[in-house]
Simulated assay, not measured.
Amino acid sequence: MRFFKNFWKYKGLLTQFIIRDIKIKYRRSVLGYLWSLLNPLLMMIVLTAVFSSMFKFDIPNFPVYLLSGQVIFNFFAEATTLSMNSIIGGGALLRKVYIPKYIFPVSKVLSSFITLLFSLLALLIVIIVTKGNISFVILLFPLPLIYILLFSIGVGLILSVLAVYFRDTLHLYTVLLSAWMYLTPLFYPVSAVPDYVKSIIYSNPMYYFVEVFRDIVLYNQVPDFHTNLLCIIFSAGSIVLGLFVFYKNQNNFVLHV
């Protein structure tokens, strides 16, 4: 409850942090915010050229399949990586004035979330160009976005704490993200992997977030109750654990940054 009261009290400061992060990201860039649209499109074109012939018999509308998974995972990777460095990067400010410390990782996740919203325009363009089906079910697209946003905030809070006390986390997480990406069916169907790999994939939270999103934007079907329930459990569990770990350790941050 205390977190939500502080969140509302310092919402103006949080907004300024988000605006600052977005401006820094695109500073001195000629195309600026257009990169949020062009980057997923260019990556989709390259990966489609590489993988589409390999999986063309198993995956209908491979470009949408690929991009719908890519935008979700890329958001998670960017948001959590930026969050991990946020407390260390804000150390000088933390030592000078009082600022609710959660603002640093949360602002990074929210600024990445805005980039994700731009990326959805790229996904819409691909759906239209590939003549994908669009039905009223697509109106449910905010649901998986809320799931992955909450999950990313929770993971980001935990990583920001770990990075303060264990700087090796910054390097280890890069390796973990690479493995995590390959264990999430972004460019291959689950049916293409052995059974022992499937058991690992089915224990991967990102698999369910991506599947719910694909159900809505690619398959035009309402995600089933079981998958939604798992997403809720992963999201709620992540943010509860993240807040617990963060609040338990935040008072000692100034001693280590």
Results as ranks from 00 to 15, higher is better:
Asp215Ser: 02
Leu255Tyr: 11
Leu14Val: 14
Thr80Pro: 00
Ser178Met: 14
Leu110Trp: 00
Leu162His: 08
Leu120Arg: 11
Tyr182Arg: 11
Lys23Thr: 12
Tyr207Pro: 13
Thr48Cys: 03
Val64Glu: 07
Lys248Asn: 01
Lys11Gln: 13
Phe17Ser: 03
Thr48Pro: 00
Leu162Trp: 04
Ile153Tyr: 02
Val109Trp: 08
Ala49Trp: 09
Ser191Ala: 08
Leu13Gln: 14
Val245Pro: 03
Val161Asn: 10
Ile201Ser: 01
Leu120Trp: 07
Ile201Lys: 00
Phe253Gln: 04
Leu120Ser: 12
Ser112Val: 00
Phe113Trp: 03
Trp35Val: 15
Arg167His: 01
Leu170Met: 10
Leu13Ile: 14
Phe141Trp: 07
Asn133Glu: 15
Thr115Asn: 15
Lys23Glu: 08
Trp8Arg: 15
Val222Ser: 07
Phe141Met: 06
Thr81Ile: 13
Lys198Val: 10
Met84Ser: 02
Tyr188Ile: 09
Leu170Gly: 04
Val50Asn: 03
Val254Ala: 10
Ser53Cys: 00
Pro189Met: 03
Tyr102Thr: 08
Val106Met: 07
Tyr202Gln: 12
Trp8Gln: 15
Gly154Arg: 04
Met54Gly: 12
Leu172Lys: 06
Phe246Met: 08
Val217Arg: 07
Ile87Lys: 00
Pro100Lys: 07
Lys5Glu: 14
Leu241Met: 08
Trp35Ile: 14
Leu145Phe: 07
Asp224Pro: 15
Leu143Val: 12
Thr130Ala: 11
Met54Gln: 05
Leu14Glu: 02
Gln250Asp: 00
Ser68Ala: 14
Asn252Phe: 11
Glu78Ser: 15
Thr81Met: 13
Lys5Arg: 15
Ser83Ala: 10
Ile59Arg: 03
Ile201Glu: 02
Leu255Gln: 11
Leu66Gly: 01
Ile99Arg: 02
Ala179Gly: 11
Trp180Asn: 12
Ser235Gly: 03
Arg167Cys: 00
Met84Phe: 01
Arg167Asp: 00
Tyr10Cys: 05
Tyr247His: 04
Thr184Arg: 07
Leu159Glu: 11
Ser53Phe: 03
Ser135Trp: 09
Tyr65Ala: 03
Ile148Met: 05
Val50Thr: 07
Ile114Trp: 08
Phe166Val: 12
Ser160Thr: 06
Lys198His: 03
Thr15Phe: 12
Ile158Lys: 05
Leu149Ser: 01
Arg95Asn: 04
Leu117Phe: 02
Arg28Thr: 07
Tyr65Met: 04
Asp168Lys: 02
Leu183Phe: 14
Ser68Met: 05
Thr169Ile: 06
Val212Cys: 06
Gly89Ser: 09
Val257Leu: 13
Ile99Leu: 13
Val30Met: 08
Gly32Glu: 00
Leu94Val: 04
Tyr196Thr: 04
Ala163Asn: 14
Asn220Cys: 09
Phe73Met: 13
Leu170Trp: 12
Pro144Tyr: 08
